[in-house]
Amino acid sequence: MGSEFEPIVPAYEKIEGGLLGNVRLVWKSFTTSLSLLENARLAFPLLMYFVIKLCIALLYLVSVREPLSSFWAIFLPGTSGEVVSHYPEHLLLMQVILRRLDIFLEIFVHVLFQAVTIALVAAALAGERKTLGSGFRLSASRYPHLIGTVFLSSVSIQVCVLAPDLLLRHLLGPGSGEIATAGAIILGLFAQAFFLYSIPAIIVTRDGLFRAIRKSFSLTGRTLLYTYLLVGIPFILTVPTLLLSFKTRLIAFRLSPEVLIYVLLASELMQLIATYLIVSASTVTYIRRSETEGTE
């Protein structure tokens, strides 16, 4: 056990060395992030968002009658509310519908809770005490910048995810599905890595939208492998449930459509863990880098 005054966050280590060295550093950032959870307040914003997601899932699950089923059908153009209200379609379409709703939630809601987490993590690192309320107030004051950066990162990620599929389909024909998926994941994570530090920049150093993005690109460019691993390793946590969500029909017909509810719950839980790791570790990295070498 360290003494009461021993810092939880380790001193900055220069990011260099090969893959193993970077993995070790990323691992340290994650353990630091997890050790910060001794202050449970840090987990609360993302837990709140998790609860919101569960409530939405709950609302979906009980919507087997009109007019609620028609509301969900809005997310599936060409499908009527009646179709969504039938069994097993109701459960088969659940993942697709909630994922589409997630796009809006990510941009307008999730970012707010991520920003609060970043504010709390930054305060904890600085040894300050920040209430949830002040975290929300700070995040709300930076809301337009936050929406802007999430919007731009989402568009970039979408482009990177779709580009390999379109390109390979054009070059290799329809049999290129697996290569395209691998390409989409690699490029999507790249795009996410370049925008990774933009929200910490908006919250911690109060940067504007474009300055934050520029800082993020610059920092990622200098720590490419490290940052790529920072987003890539938590992504691995979500892969099993992601793969299961691709096999909805198989799960429904081989096991039971109800299993899809558990897949959804597991998926949300993994997302929660992965998001906390990424948000917290990126904030730790951003602050340490700003303190020692600046970010520009």
């Binding site: 009461e4 005054f5 021993e6 810092p7 939880i8 966050v9 001193a11 910060l36 001794e38 202050n39 449970a40 307040r41 840090l42 987990a43 609360f44 837990l47 998790f50 609860v51 569960l54 409530c55 899932a57 709950l58 699950l61 904890a124 690192l125 600085a126 040894g127 300050e128 005490r129 509810i261 719950l265």
Partner: peptide, 27 residues
């Protein structure tokens, strides 16, 4: 390096766990 203070936030943990458990049960 400043120490990290452990404040009242610790008491939120059981509340959070209870809230999530309730939601999971509801779902």
């Amino acid at each position: 390096m400043k120490e990290i203070r452990k404040g009242k936030g610790t008491s939120l943990l059981p509340l959070s766990v209870a809230l999530i458990a309730a939601c999971l049960m509801l779902v």
